[in-house]
């Protein structure tokens, strides 16, 4: 079953002579529970693809369908609400709210939804990411690896249809990187989470079910690694 469908996605930046085509008609389909790595050199358009799938940016043409919903047909508010329930985003630079504690940051998408905090779920996530003892710490009191684990927790809290990770290990040392990838793989296995990772790192890409290569805004290679 395909949980993500990207059809003829186009995105350009700038106007006139300085127009840059970031995506030039991208088609992609991802099944539920799949672990996909997107690789490509810098400027190839992989981050743009990621932002469009996550609904934080809008394309010039084409569509993105997540779990049966065509996301760009929604208004901005609807999209925001859709995002908090169905998409988990992990950034290279963690992007936590500095004034909220680790557990509050994890709960953020749920709190934005005015839903009651689910303590069991929170507990199990804190255990999974190994931060039960540091739940009340502010981001500034955590190391980079720990902060990134918090942002993984935030991506997991609402059981989203899809988790998007943009160079999640780009800012981390090799030990922390390994931990984060293990964590994401665990989520992928344990909760059958769909996972799309953008990465430079070949070692990480090789752990995925499927590797999609982007160059100059187009998908040039799409290989399935494991059956």
């Amino acid at each position: 079953m395909s949980i993500l469908q990207v059809k003829e996605l186009k995105k350009t930046y700038g106007k006139g002579d300085t127009t840059v085509t970031a995506l030039d008609g991208v088609n992609l389909s991802v099944n539920k529970g799949e672990f996909v790595a997107i690789i490509g050199s810098s400027g190839s358009g992989k981050s743009t693809l990621m932002h469009l799938i996550g609904g934080v940016d809008r394309p010039n043409s084409g569509s993105v369908i997540v779990d049966g919903n065509e996301i760009f047909k929604q208004s901005e508010s609807e999209l925001a609400i859709f995002r908090r329930r169905n998409i988990g985003i992990i950034y290279q630079f963690y992007n936590l709210i500095p004034t909220l504690t680790a557990e509050e940051n994890i709960m953020l998408p749920r709190l934005l939804d005015n839903r009651k905090p689910d303590n069991d779920k929170l507990k199990s996530i804190l255990e999974t990411i190994g931060l039960s003892a540091r739940a009340k710490h502010l981001p500034s009191q955590l190391s980079g690896g720990q902060q990134q684990r918090v942002s993984v927790g935030r991506a997991l809290i609402n059981d989203p249809a899809i988790i998007l990770a943009d160079e999640p290990t780009g800012n981390l040392d090799s030990k922390s990187s390994r931990e984060i990838i293990e964590l994401l793989k665990l989520a992928n296995k344990r909760y059958n989470q769909t996972l799309v990772i953008i990465t430079h790192d070949e070692k990480i890409a090789l752990q995925a079910d499927r590797i999609v290569t982007i160059s100059d805004g187009q998908i040039v290679k799409d290989e399935v690694m494991k059956a």
Partner: peptide, 9 residues
């Protein structure tokens, strides 16, 4: 960040 995790305007 809040917007990207689903906060409305």
């Amino acid at each position: 960040v809040m917007k990207s995790v689903g906060a409305t305007k």
